[in-house]
Design a protein around this nucleic acid. Structure first.
Lengths: 207, 207
DNA sequence: GGCGTCATACCGTCCGGTCGGTCTTAAATT
DNA sequence: AATTTAAGACCGACCGGACGGTATGACGCC
């Protein structure tokens, strides 16, 4: 039996200060799902990477699917809260849409692993959780769409393109970020957000 | 043992006129991959749906991965050939870019299952085939980028947004089509192509 | 009689999930 | 203060079954 330094479970005592097991599991799982895919990542892989055993994982999460669901839920919750704040803030419709677009790009790039897992493995979720995620997602889209509609009503944006299509259009761009963006590239998340925002607004503007 | 009506393998004889086994396997595999995901679709599922047995499948394809690779290869080959034709055709850079954009959207929507599989399961391919697919894909992107650059050089498109970013931007939209488009919706593939093209060109236009 | 085209039976592996048990910590009881 | 009880946190061996792939051979056609 090995002597284990007594890092009490409650608060970090060692210099590493590793987060509690539950969060650690979710974090390494996200990373592994993003790198190798959900189905190619075994529960054993996850617990090994987290430095625990299966018993620990099934203590905190009901199944492997649960882990996956948490990823979606966290990202969506954060981005929805951001959007709510921006939409309710000051500024014209265009100004707020600019902020919203730049923000969703930036936060997505800041959580690339989550996005990769998100758009790649949604269909692996059991039907009920999948439905729930889609509902949350739909809610986000609706708020985004409302911003576009505002701009159309104000005469800032062209009215001959359905706002539904616009939302699908731009959120597609966001969802695909994980497939090409490299964090060590020449562009920062913020810069990409600004450029994409320009392209969106340009496409929407009346000529 | 069941008597099977003698539909000779060579040419269709029955009224159903089912395509030969090899094509049928690829077709049903694509469909199943799109519906349930690559990893959740067993080889047994595929051969059952095709009305044959494993022996037949492993006679025509070396592995399950081979089947997946064929999907990518076919779509990419077709779209690249389309793009080549358009790029070499007549018209200004903007006109040809419009044609190219509308075409890639329309052909993608006409082969939705392939697109769904494409963007969702690329990472399941073995490293070598994955590299090859990426190369073909990169080639397509380069040709698309060349069109954008042409327009920039001609002064039609704004020069302050890197054409690389523009390509990523628009092809993201294309790659995500499978995640929201419903063939029985109110918009036809051609209409979606036109609208997306408008949004793209609008974003690129100098003001 | 050789070759292409499939059918059938089978194998080895891997994986999600279970389950009884142990250790630690905190509250309750004496 | 000492002892018991309860509960959470985590361990790790194990199971049942599914799944990709193979080996062998039958059947027809040139």
């Amino acid at each position: 039996m090995v002597l284990r330094s007594k890092e009490s479970a409650g608060r970090p005592a060692g210099k590493t200060a590793r987060p509690p097991v539950k969060e650690r599991l979710l974090h390494v799982a996200t990373r592994l799902f993003a790198r190798h895919g959900f189905e190619s990542t075994s529960v054993q892989d996850i617990v090994d990477a987290a430095g625990v055993t299966k018993g620990a994982m099934y203590h905190y999460y009901g199944s492997k699917d649960d882990l996956l669901y948490e990823v979606y839920h966290q990202v969506l919750t954060m981005q929805t809260s951001h959007l709510d704040q921006i939409a309710a803030g000051p500024g014209t419709a265009e100004e707020r849409l600019r902020l919203a677009a730049a923000d969703v790009v930036r936060t997505s790039l800041d959580n690339l692993d989550d996005m990769i897992v998100f758009f790649r493995s949604l269909h692996m979720l059991p039907e009920d959780k999948q439905t729930q995620v889609r509902a949350e997602r739909r809610a986000y889209q609706e708020k985004f769409k409302a911003l576009v509609d505002e701009g159309v009503a104000a005469g800032t944006f062209r009215a001959d393109i359905s706002s539904d299509i616009v939302v699908h259009y731009f959120l597609s761009v966001v969802n695909q970020l994980g497939s090409w963006f490299k964090p060590d590239g020449s562009l920062s998340p913020g810069q990409v957000g600004d450029l994409f925002t320009e392209l969106l607004i340009g496409g929407l503007a009346v000529r």
